[in-house]
Design a protein around this nucleic acid. Sequence first.
DNA 1: CGGTCTCTTGACGGAGTTCAAAGCTAGTGG
DNA 2: CCACTAGCTTTGAACTCCGTCAAGAGACCG
Lengths: 193, 193
Amino acid sequence: MVDFLKKYLTAKTGLSEEKVELWSSVFSPRKVSKNEYLLREGEVCRYSTFVCQGCLRLYSIDGKGREHIMQFAPEEWWVADAQSFSDNTPSLYFIDALEDSEVMQMDQQGQAKLLKIVPESALFYQSLMQKRQAVSQRRIATSMSASAEERYLDFMKTYPSFIQRIPQHMIASYLGITPESLSRIRKSVVSKK
Amino acid sequence: MVDFLKKYLTAKTGLSEEKVELWSSVFSPRKVSKNEYLLREGEVCRYSTFVCQGCLRLYSIDGKGREHIMQFAPEEWWVADAQSFSDNTPSLYFIDALEDSEVMQMDQQGQAKLLKIVPESALFYQSLMQKRQAVSQRRIATSMSASAEERYLDFMKTYPSFIQRIPQHMIASYLGITPESLSRIRKSVVSKK
DNA sequence: CGGTCTCTTGACGGAGTTCAAAGCTAGTGG
DNA sequence: CCACTAGCTTTGAACTCCGTCAAGAGACCG
């Protein structure tokens, strides 16, 4: 579990073994079983979470009680409500596990300590944040310009591995459509081929 | 123009006069006339821009030739394609001026220099980035859960000052609806009151 | 097995788009 | 300083995509 994180950090940052060792030392392993929550709306997000095994999701629930999935997080993904994590403000989001999962978690003190002992980490997290922002921007543009079918095809192309293991109705929620619509879209996509 | 930036930095960061002086020293003033471009799709975004006077917009153009506005930037706002700016990759976006404007710009070298001479700036930009991300997340959730009318009312509540000076069809573009729809929504909102 | 959760299918309705045209407004040049 | 044009906003009518509601078929788990 720790090894998975170390391997990831080495691959992504190219830092020395000692640095990677220090970096991963601020994380604690944790097992999360399916349907277990890591964060609920109204709570403060205490951890930045790295997924070693399994799959999590980040989502909100709107005024009409409907779920809207913002992010899926399988192996090698990070999840947190960054705003809540760094400002200690109550989160608007939920995080839970779609499968039995193994994760590594860092709290705020850990983050602060990490910045001191491995200053390079700041750059890494900044670039991570930037990529996340780029994805969000793209998603906004797509939700405005593309039809439900185009969005589904785009999703399949971008995250082909997600199709296998994530339930249809959750993909629908991510795409901003109903499960019924997604079912019809899939049918029509297949028949077109 | 420089003074406007200094005043802003002092208010936002509470740093000393000398630090603010150093900070603003990495910026260059620039006048942008209405409809002038600061960035086009395919170009690298060379500057992080702070608006002192006027109003800019950040938008994309989709495959069908339609504009989708991602952000308006009046006084005291920052605009840039952060991804392109830091990675030197071609941007997917356009930035242009809705009004004759005065801005302060910092390039990558300036940013690097700034980090050395005013380390506190890193925290500031990180938090800026985080807020931007929070706004994007919220916008995604809203675009999935709310009707066009709800989105318009939400926009009016969140950015009341924009209504006065930004053309309707651009607000429609920001909201992801057609100008015709926005016109009808406005009519119905007025008649309800 | 039995019950719950997930996916599919059908019929219908409604929010928003598209296309077309007409009024308004504001900027420009003579 | 007025006249003219180009762009912005409004309005109408027809259409379309997707949501809603309802019901049935599978699949998974205790």
